[in-house]
């Protein structure tokens, strides 16, 4: 502990420690029967939003490119994995099927991230924000119009309606247009979600402290300087953005396997959700991975915990957002906070 651990690795360990401690406390509460079923139901969504926030923070805070389409990547990951799970619902055992669903969801989200990155990441400026915003909306509308069915002859696809699939009697409609996918097996649980979160944290934190990560941050800080020392700008941007999209896809896989209905409507995958994830990132601190996790958890739980206030809860939620922003980032508030903590620190020593 004395010299073996650098400050950064200590910092990393604190993040893992917080997640693991929270997990142990919550699991202990649950097994002791102290947890309400309301809170127990919130654990998985809370974790996948934390994963999405870490993914977006990697894109916004480390790469320095604004993305407004992370809900779109979640959507792609959710749908591709849910299609897979529905097709192999009877033929594959649960554990293996869910693992493969993860592989597929992550791969498809990464592929879309890569394809979007090709034209956009060569450019300077906020083009990524515009294109990802459009991507999120397009993918949502396309999935709303797709009908996919499977019978003994194989897959049938249609863009008009489910009758146009022309399936045999035993055929099963998998994506039913606007009605989405129903009956996805509920494979996700809190333990798996936390493991995924830890893996995502491990990847991001190690990436930041690697050679590639330093190159990515150099691009963020000064593009010209980075270019002058021979960093391949487009390559590193693509790398970071694809990883970010893949992690958002993982969050989508958890999303679709935690609830049996999946529809690509705007309350799940619209740009509002992308902005909600961005709110988690901004309030948690851009570039602070741990901050994203904590902010996502608090801000997801808050409106649910305020349920007793009925219709005032959304009002209070908005006030809390503003208060959090001021306390975290207003110069006067920061100064005050620093003075307070300085005193606290002296006493502690």
């Amino acid at each position: 502990m004395k010299k073996g651990l650098s400050k950064t690795s200590l910092n990393q360990l604190i993040t893992y420690g917080i997640v693991i401690a929270a997990y142990i406390i919550l699991q202990a509460l649950r097994s002791a029967g102290m947890m309400t079923s309301h809170l127990a139901g919130l654990l998985v969504p809370m974790t996948y939003y934390a994963i999405a926030a870490v993914a977006l923070n990697f894109c916004v805070g480390i790469l320095g490119e604004l993305s407004l389409g992370h809900a779109g990547f979640m959507c792609v990951g959710a749908f591709s994995s849910a299609i897979f799970s529905n097709v192999f619902k009877e033929t594959l055992p649960g554990g293996l099927r869910f693992f493969l669903a993860f592989v597929i969801g992550i791969a498809v989200a990464a592929l879309f991230g890569f394809l979007i990155g090709i034209p956009v990441l060569r450019l300077k400026g906020d083009y990524l924000a515009i294109v990802t915003l459009a991507f999120g909306e397009i993918i949502k509308n396309v999935l709303n119009a797709v009908y996919l069915g499977k019978d003994s002859k194989g897959f049938h696809v249609s863009m008009t309606n489910s009758m146009a699939l022309g399936m045999e009697e035993d055929g099963k409609v998998i994506i039913n247009g606007a009605m989405g996918i129903n009956g996805t097996p509920r494979d996700a649980n809190f333990t798996i979600a936390v493991i995924v979160l830890l893996i995502v944290l491990f990847i991001v934190q190690n990436m930041i402290n690697s050679r590639d990560g330093r190159a990515i941050m150099a691009i963020r800080d000064n593009r010209i300087a980075a270019e002058s020392v021979g960093i391949n700008i487009t390559r590193y941007k693509m790398l970071a953005f694809t990883i970010s999209a893949a992690m958002a896809g993982a969050a989508g896989v958890l999303f679709s396997h935690n609830i049996s209905t999946l529809q690509s409507t705007s309350q799940y995958f619209g740009y509002n959700v992308s902005i909600l994830i961005l709110v988690y990132v901004v309030l948690g601190g851009i570039g602070s991975i741990r901050g994203s996790v904590i902010a996502a958890c608090i801000l997801y739980l808050l409106p649910e915990m305020l349920r007793s206030l009925n219709k005032y809860r959304m009002l209070i939620y908005a006030i809390v957002l503003i208060a959090m922003m001021i306390i975290n980032w207003a110069p006067a508030a920061r100064e005050m906070r620093e003075r307070f903590f300085a005193k606290f620190r002296k006493e502690a020593v």
Partner: peptide, 23 residues
């Protein structure tokens, strides 16, 4: 850095408090 650590630990504590009171 240290200040950041303290803040995040406090926030984590606040979060777990919120969870506990919620329960």
């Amino acid at each position: 850095k240290k200040f950041k650590t303290i803040v995040s630990v406090t926030m984590a504590a606040a979060m777990s408090m919120a969870l506990l009171t919620g329960c």
